Simulated scan of single mutants.
Amino acid sequence: MNKKVLIVEDEGSIRGFLKINFKRNNFTVIEAESGEKAIENARIEKPIITILDIMLPGIDGFKTCEILRREFPQMGIIILTARSQDMDKIMGLEFGADDYMIKPFNPLELIARVNSLLRRIGSQENRSDLIVSGNYKIDDRAMKVYKDDAEIDLTPKEYMLMKIFMNNPGKALSRNELLNLVWGYDYIGDTKIVDVNIRRLREKVEEESSHPKTIETVWGVGYRWRKN
Rank of each mutant, 00 (worst) to 15 (best):
I188C: 09
L110G: 13
I78E: 04
Y146V: 13
S123A: 14
I54F: 04
P107Y: 01
K4A: 04
D139T: 10
S13M: 07
N167S: 13
Y223S: 06
G189V: 06
A172I: 03
G35K: 06
P169K: 08
D98Y: 00
K144E: 14
H211R: 15
R175I: 10
G220P: 04
F22G: 02
A172L: 03
K63D: 13
K163L: 10
T64R: 02
V8Q: 08
Y159E: 02
F72E: 14
N167G: 12
I39Q: 10
R175Y: 03
T64F: 03
V205H: 01
W183N: 13
G61A: 07
D129R: 08
N25Q: 10
E33P: 01
I102V: 15
A97T: 09
D129S: 09
W183A: 10
D149I: 01
N26S: 12
F17R: 01
N41E: 14
R43H: 07
E125W: 00
V132D: 08
R127W: 00
I30S: 02
A112N: 09
R226I: 04
E206V: 08
K89V: 15
G222H: 04
Q85A: 08
K137C: 08
P169C: 02
E208W: 00
Y185F: 07
M143F: 05
D153V: 13
S133W: 01
T64Y: 06
R69I: 02
G61S: 03
L154H: 06
Y136G: 03
E216Y: 10
P104L: 12
K3N: 10
G222P: 11
V182W: 13
I7K: 02
N25A: 09
M55W: 01
L80T: 07
T64I: 02
D129P: 00
I102W: 00
I138F: 03
S84W: 00
K63I: 10
A142G: 02
I198Q: 07
V221S: 11
M75D: 06
Y185E: 14
P156Q: 12
V194H: 07
R202Y: 10
W225F: 11
I215W: 09
V8M: 03
L56R: 03
P57T: 03
M160L: 09
P169W: 06
N228I: 11
R70I: 00
F62M: 01
